[in-house]
């Protein structure tokens, strides 16, 4: 579910008209992701016919958000330098990949939660994250060590 605000932003009117109450469409995109705002609040999307296609796409994209996400982890690739901090600090990785990520090397297990691919971090296997499932804990270790907030959580 690698939803990122850039993809949402691209489909918004990008006029920064402020009708939604946000200063920019970009911040509206972020708020949408955080479920602090609803798509309907961007009235131009619904009033202006030329946005219809974009609106449909957006509605589709945002659907998963409605059904509370599993872990709520979002990566904004535009802010990610691929530094690998998040991959190396993740306690699950440290435990499962003692000769790879735990000692700083590129992760060697096949189903890591996060992996740096093509220059930015990608979510590979959400199910392994501590925030997932019945015994979930509110782990924030990866986000805490990302200095550009390229990693966010929908909640907590």
């Amino acid at each position: 579910m690698a939803l990122n605000p850039m993809d949402i932003y691209k489909l918004l009117p990008k006029t920064n008209c402020k009708k939604c109450g946000e200063a920019t469409c970009m911040s509206f995109a972020f708020k949408l992701l955080n479920r602090e705002r609803k798509l309907e609040e961007c009235t131009p999307l619904y009033e202006d016919k030329k946005y219809e296609r974009q609106r449909k796409k957006l509605e589709e994209m945002l659907k998963p958000l409605e059904e509370a996400t599993e872990t709520g982890l979002i990566v904004d690739e535009g802010l990610c330098t691929g530094c690998g901090n998040c991959v190396v600090v993740c306690p699950v990785h440290v435990e499962k990949d003692p000769k790879g990520a735990a000692v700083g090397k590129g992760i060697t297990i096949d189903d890591p939660i996060l992996r740096v691919e093509d220059g930015a971090v990608k979510v590979i296997n959400m199910q392994a994250c501590r925030r997932y499932g019945k015994n979930r804990v509110l782990c924030v270790v990866c986000r805490e060590n990302c200095p550009t907030d390229a990693i966010r959580f929908l909640e907590g």
Partner: peptide, 24 residues
């Protein structure tokens, strides 16, 4: 000089953004 860069199915693994650009 990171020595752990892998290329799998055309994807460049573990290189940071700058490194990736050089390979890509």
């Amino acid at each position: 000089l990171c020595d752990d860069i892998e290329i799998v199915d055309g994807r460049i693994l573990h290189a940071c953004r700058r490194g990736e650009e050089i390979f890509e």
